[in-house]
């Protein structure tokens, strides 16, 4: 993740403003006088980008296409050594954990069960695994590996708890959905994941 206070990030933020009139430019110039030249240059570029008119149609010659595609294919989603499983919750604590729950549209208590390895890996439907992988920047394979290797007790050891740890048995995904307090809409959507994957 880039640092939001880098000059580059500040120029990015200016670029994606809804308007680039004087009040917006002036605000940035006053806040970041060290970037005056860059902001004025960018303002000019954005004015031209914003000018009406369709870009020319038709295919543009792209001699670098094949090499670029091969390079892209070569950048496989980061492979993790087979004996090393990434725990996505290590970097999803506090606010990030709350954000992850929001991104998955599940209650935090539901997500906690995954963090603590309380869900039988084989019962987790593929659509949920994919969404989880997407939200945690893992490959789908890495997410699966995490679910498989997460064990009750072991996973939870990494996190501070207010209560004395105790062994709990694993639940299936469907059982967890039915047992967790959530809105009807959330429940239906998660159950639909199970149905789509033929998991009962």
């Amino acid at each position: 993740m880039s640092n939001p206070h880098d000059p580059e990030a500040i120029l990015d933020a200016f670029a994606v403003e809804a308007t680039h009139d004087w009040s917006t430019l002036d605000r940035y110039l006053r806040q970041y006088p060290e970037l005056t030249e860059e902001l004025i240059d960018l303002s000019s570029e954005l004015r031209l980008a914003n000018a009406p008119g369709k870009p020319a149609g038709g295919t543009v010659a792209d001699p670098g296409l094949e090499a670029a595609w091969q390079e892209f294919l070569g950048c496989k989603r980061q492979a993790v050594p087979s004996n090393e499983v990434v725990n996505p919750f290590v970097r999803c604590k506090g606010a990030a954990f709350v954000q992850l729950a929001a991104a998955l549209n599940v209650p935090r208590s539901f997500l906690t069960a995954f963090r603590d390895g309380l869900v039988t890996a084989t019962s987790i439907p593929e659509p949920f695994t994919r969404r989880f992988a997407d939200a945690t920047s893992l490959s789908v394979e890495s997410a699966r590996d995490y679910f498989v290797q997460a064990q009750p007790g072991l996973a939870a050891l990494a996190f501070k708890s207010d209560v004395k740890p105790s062994h709990q048995g694993q639940k299936t995904f469907r059982e967890l959905v039915l047992a967790t307090e959530m809105t009807d809409e959330q429940r239906q959507l998660l159950l639909r994941d199970c149905d789509a994957d033929g998991l009962y």
Partner: peptide
């Protein structure tokens, strides 16, 4: 490559403005 490049979020937000940048 696995490292979420959040600069692409600018393009998902306003593609042409991010290109202008």
């Amino acid at each position: 490559g696995g490292e979420y490049d959040d600069r692409l979020d600018c393009f998902e937000c306003r593609f042409n403005f991010a290109l202008a940048r």
